[in-house]
Amino acid sequence: MTSGPSAAGVVQGGESAFPKSEYDGRIAQARQRLDAAGIDVMIITGPENIFYLTGQQTPGYYTFQALVLPVDGDPVFVIRQLEYFNFISNTFISDAAVYTDGDEPVTFLTGLIEAKGYANRRIAIDKRGWFLPIAVYEALQAKLGTVHDGARIIEGLRAVKSPAEVAKIELAAGYVDAGLNAGLAAVKVGASENDIVAAMMQAAIAAGSEYMGMEPLTSVGRRTGVPHGTWRRNVIADGEPAFLEMAACHDRYHAALMRSAWIGAVPTVAEEMEKACQDALAASLDAIRPGEPCSAAHLACQAVIDKAGFTENFRKRTGYSIGISFAPDWGEGGILSLYTGVDTPLEPGMVFHIPPALRIYGQFTVGVSETIVVTETGWRALGTIPRPLARIAA
């Protein structure tokens, strides 16, 4: 083991999300995929893929970290010294290469690769991850020559969740239920967006949630008509909508949920849009069956929205894979989307967030969602909150 600081008092794997056997199995599967792709060594930098293979998790992933995974030989984790004890607590990896803040991380990494005898091997990296700066990639190329594309090798393993992973997502879904129930209860005349989000976050965290991959997307009044708008102290009045969407997290596994509310009289067009969202969600869920392509759920959803006359109000995918996430997102949309042209067959154990929403930009948004797991015969919702628009008396 490359020497790090003394780990006295820190138990190897003591805070790991899964037992060692789970990670051993994942690394074995990853090696099979690397071998099939003709890759000798994979440099893995994405925090989601690192977590999947090792259990390492830290909010400090903004500094360089990498798992060097050879097809033959032990994996080595390249990590900043400050993160070393986090690494010990979360993983069962026996070999850490620890760099200091005075080291240049890419030079440190390439020195390790040369020392291990990997420099002339076929090396790949997860090019499409969130956290691989162009400068790092170019520096690796300059020092190592051709660096091949290892994108989707690990992601392909993450697409289908094990029963143990689904159990963690179910726990996260329970935390979301707590948060959304509290948020809906906070919607009343005179309440601010901050009041609603504070209720949501407090309840979800009190229920057990860890830090989420993205903040709640919650707004009131005309601001709900801005996609991905979130709280800015605005106050809700009679006759106005509230839009609530949030995720929660258990051991980095996420679930999400979207609900809408309206105080007082609901405009006719909003009623029509809300009904279209409900029907579109139901149609997309009816299309979720093992063996069907991911696109089927989107086409079913889109057909309902088109028939209702709201095509121009819905210009997005129907859903996306959800599971392991770090900021800036709570989803795994880079793994699978429910969208036109995505022909990957659905399999039991895949988990999706499906959030049909319709809006008149700058006026209002209505929407509804479920986080579901694909089963042997169809799907199962992980949340319990009723789907209809919450109608709140002024």
Results as ranks from 00 to 15, higher is better:
Met258Thr: 15
Asp279Glu: 15
Ser284Phe: 02
Met246Ser: 11
Cys249Met: 12
Trp262Met: 03
Glu274Ala: 08
Gly264Tyr: 02
Ala255Ile: 11
Leu257Met: 14
Thr268Asp: 15
Pro267Ser: 10
Ser260Ala: 12
His250Lys: 08
Leu281Asp: 05
Met258His: 12
Met246Cys: 11
Pro267Val: 07
Glu272Asp: 10
Ser284Trp: 03
Ala256Val: 09
Met246Lys: 07
Lys275Gln: 15
Met273Thr: 01
Glu274Ser: 15
Ala248Thr: 04
Pro267Gln: 08
Ala261Val: 10
Trp262Asp: 00
Ala283Gly: 03
Ala261Lys: 00
Gly264Thr: 05
Ser260Trp: 01
His250Trp: 02
Ala261Thr: 09
His250Met: 10
Pro267Gly: 09
Ala261Gln: 08
Met258Ile: 15
Leu281His: 04
Cys249Lys: 11
Ala255Gly: 11
Leu257Trp: 03
Ile263Lys: 00
Met258Lys: 12
Glu271Cys: 05
Ile263Val: 15
Val266Gly: 13
Trp262Val: 03
Gln278Lys: 11
Ala280Lys: 02
Thr268Cys: 02
Arg259Tyr: 07
Asp279Ala: 15
Thr268Asn: 07
Glu271Asn: 03
Ala282Pro: 00
Ala255His: 12
Ala270Trp: 00
Lys275Pro: 00
Met258Glu: 15
Glu274Arg: 06
Ala280Phe: 08
Ala280Asp: 04
Thr268Pro: 00
Met258Cys: 14
Ala283Ser: 11
